[in-house]
Design a protein around this nucleic acid. Sequence first.
DNA 1: GATGAATGAGCATTCATTCAT
DNA 2: AATGAATGAATGCTCATTCAT
Lengths: 197, 197, 197, 197
Amino acid sequence: MPVEQLRSQQRHQRILDAATQVFSTKGYHAALVDEIAAEADTSKGGVYFHFPNKQAIFLALLDRLADILRERVESAVAVHGDPLARAEAALHVVLETFGSHRRLARLFLVEALGAGPEFNARMVAIRADFADLIRVHLDEAVATGAIPPLDTATAATAWFGAVNEVVTHWALARSPGRLEDAYPTIRGLLLHGLYAS
Amino acid sequence: MPVEQLRSQQRHQRILDAATQVFSTKGYHAALVDEIAAEADTSKGGVYFHFPNKQAIFLALLDRLADILRERVESAVAVHGDPLARAEAALHVVLETFGSHRRLARLFLVEALGAGPEFNARMVAIRADFADLIRVHLDEAVATGAIPPLDTATAATAWFGAVNEVVTHWALARSPGRLEDAYPTIRGLLLHGLYAS
Amino acid sequence: MPVEQLRSQQRHQRILDAATQVFSTKGYHAALVDEIAAEADTSKGGVYFHFPNKQAIFLALLDRLADILRERVESAVAVHGDPLARAEAALHVVLETFGSHRRLARLFLVEALGAGPEFNARMVAIRADFADLIRVHLDEAVATGAIPPLDTATAATAWFGAVNEVVTHWALARSPGRLEDAYPTIRGLLLHGLYAS
Amino acid sequence: MPVEQLRSQQRHQRILDAATQVFSTKGYHAALVDEIAAEADTSKGGVYFHFPNKQAIFLALLDRLADILRERVESAVAVHGDPLARAEAALHVVLETFGSHRRLARLFLVEALGAGPEFNARMVAIRADFADLIRVHLDEAVATGAIPPLDTATAATAWFGAVNEVVTHWALARSPGRLEDAYPTIRGLLLHGLYAS
DNA sequence: GATGAATGAGCATTCATTCAT
DNA sequence: AATGAATGAATGCTCATTCAT
């Protein structure tokens, strides 16, 4: 009976969407399951039918977002041959994605920390995954001699952090500008350091 | 009665130290005032005599830490004449300070974000302050022509973020290495980008 | 449509069997309708098609068990002419039945009491019925002069209780022996008291 | 500061008294912690300050009652030299105590069962303790030759059960008579069996 | 100043029951 | 008849905060 399964999956998604909304507005702890239920046009019991507990909802959210981001990065990277261009593309996609989903950015970069030690392990893993997405290209760039040898793991982490901080700043700003405007500066900085142009 | 005032200030400090310990271990929400009291060898009432509420303890902690960090940065910066060297020194001090106080790093970079929307404004301000500490030197460097013109605000934020992410990664790692080891890579990256000779 | 009726009755029985299993393992309150449904290879809705609510399942269970016990007692009693022998036979059958169905014993003697005030009235009635099953024979024994006059109601209750406690003890024991072994002692005690020759 | 300790202990007792009232009226599961708090003129938090959870309150209640009962039995037993008279005295005290505290009887003999498997172990232990209180005297009576050898453990359990059932019957009765009236019958039955007088 | 008993609003979670399909 | 998603009232427990002593 695909009709019922479909309905069920739709509800599942509706709850996740509602959770995104509530978590990113109130933060993990202040978010009430009741609010998520209301936002999803369901009852509290309905939420608990689809998820075992509040934590699982949040985790599912992070995973969903991480998957989306990863996919976007990978397809953006695919069109470039040059390792450095790939790394750049990855950077650009993250900025672009968060730039058009301030809510998600906030959820991912702000609320996910401090939601409790239970989440830290998962967050470390997710963030490390992204840094890795960049590292492989740096490694390749080093291998091809495009850039001098360096500690690519630290470099990738730093790259990712640079982007994150700019995004976080923007995500928490009271009246944020356009995130994309920061791109040229970040790009230049990462590629050439302060001695850009 | 200076003796009693002294006693009171000592108690104040003892509570903050206890709070540092508890908050950085359990996270803001999971930390109980009871635990802080116990760790400070006081009673719950004692804690509430010195601080109006839990939030205030956390905020006082952040402020104390920010002050210490700022002071260190400023005195480290003072010994350098060259703007770029000053920026570098600031960076190095942050890395060094957190590197020798993993607990503080975790508190400042992980728990403080996501502790709840109440704290976000303050954290944004604090982080912006630090970025600013770097920005002024970059501005000066631009003014003296040491480096080409660029969006120094974004650049400073990115710098700060790059350092933060590396520190955060280290602060959350299960078996962290020496944070200082990351310094040369970060330094090269920030100054010269990937093409660091 | 006798085929369908049969199917329905089988399902009814299957649910009762499943309920016996679950109730006696978890106790009335901790037993979930979901578990009963799963154990009966049905759905929750299926259970509610056959029974109006959880309480009714439990009550039906008690009644079924009481009926079985009553029947056994009555047929065992029928083969004896002597009133005292009848009383004895009743006692023996109860011991024997529970002895071979520890689960039922537990259900009947432990969970049924204390399952909640709603059940107390019914349990009192059921237990009184059994005491009565014994009482009538005692009355007859008194009438025929086989034993001296006594408060047969209290005596029958006490008999029943003596048996119950021994069974309960056995039903709750971690590693129970053979219940039948207790029979001679109980028999002697009830007939002759401590001075059983 | 004995004043404060006294106050605390009084509150502790008040909660236990309230719990006795509520548990014996509603049964373990239907009893709300809120009701106990209200009955004890405290708040829910007050209850939880003195007891870690609902279960602990119930267990404390059972233990308190068991202690009282044990003490009474022991002091009643002490005045008799004859082993059989001691056993009789124990029996009488139980009947008398429950007879004047129907509420406790109900709690102890009805609600304690079925409160959940967690309690069964404790209840078995408590009931076994009481049976043992009787058994030791029976053993002595056997040793002195006052009564013929018999399985004293089973006999003591049966004695205890006989008394329990009569008490339970009375505790659950809608309009109970005087429990003490049952004493002569039970006494005669236990000592001489049906061939009493 | 310090203590710790008391407060009570707050919330996640459970689960019997219903009902559209 | 059967299914299982959905409901929502119910409740144990937490914990920041207060305040009498």
